[in-house]
Amino acid sequence: MIETKNLKKVFGDNYVLNGINETINKGEKVVIIGPSGSGKSTFLRCLNLLEEPTEGEIWFEGKKINDKKADINKIRQKMGMVFQQFNLFPHLTVLDNITLAPTRLGLMTKDEARDKAMELLKRIGLSEKALSYPNHLSGGQKQRIAIIRALAMNPDVMLFDEPTSALDPEMVGEVLDLMEALAREGMTMVVVTHEMRFAKRVATRVMFMDEGRIVEQNTPEELFENPQHPRLREFLSKIL
């Protein structure tokens, strides 16, 4: 579904991504872990071209997307993204946040988008917040709405960039629960996170990145119980 070939990203003379060859298949839940500055967020942001790669290729559903001829806006409609800072639109109501893109892009009529949004809001138990503005919500509520805003586009894959890192500890659970529910429904997910419990429970594959490379990857059981690479052992000993 997603494939990267020799993906490199250079800021100045700093190699943030150092040639990544990786394939992510439909239905996989890939969790990316690693120390800060290891390039995991940059890798994720390259997948929908929020970050332009310096070198290499990115393929999505059989198309090379970092190509001048590729219609990146069309491609991004199929790749939902959730940010650390939520990035809800503060000048719009919750409902308008969710319906803006589907209606603007002509994917749904106003009524269809509204129904879909209300159905999603009901699912996360926030129907009564439809007409509230984002700044009147808690962090956990904001992030769950950001997730369903992405879902309203019916994406084929969801990218999560440290979705719980900006949350107060007591709100982390509600966001992870929603993500776990999504995973159970078969959504393809790529998640950058520091939540190792989530990785253990949900991931089909965990990647450990360090210095712009995927140093080791395995099923969560193997990776956490039986780490091979010294950098991974060091990392796990610090956080567990």
């Binding site: 806006n73 991004r76 939902g80 639109f89 603007r104 892009l105 586009m153």
Partner: peptide
Amino acid sequence: IDKGQMEAGRSLGLSYIQTMRKIILPQ
């Protein structure tokens, strides 16, 4: 305006101009 707003708009598939008009400029 926080650059995350532009990124959020673009990540939903909106074009640069659509994001500018509907999300950035009103704020």
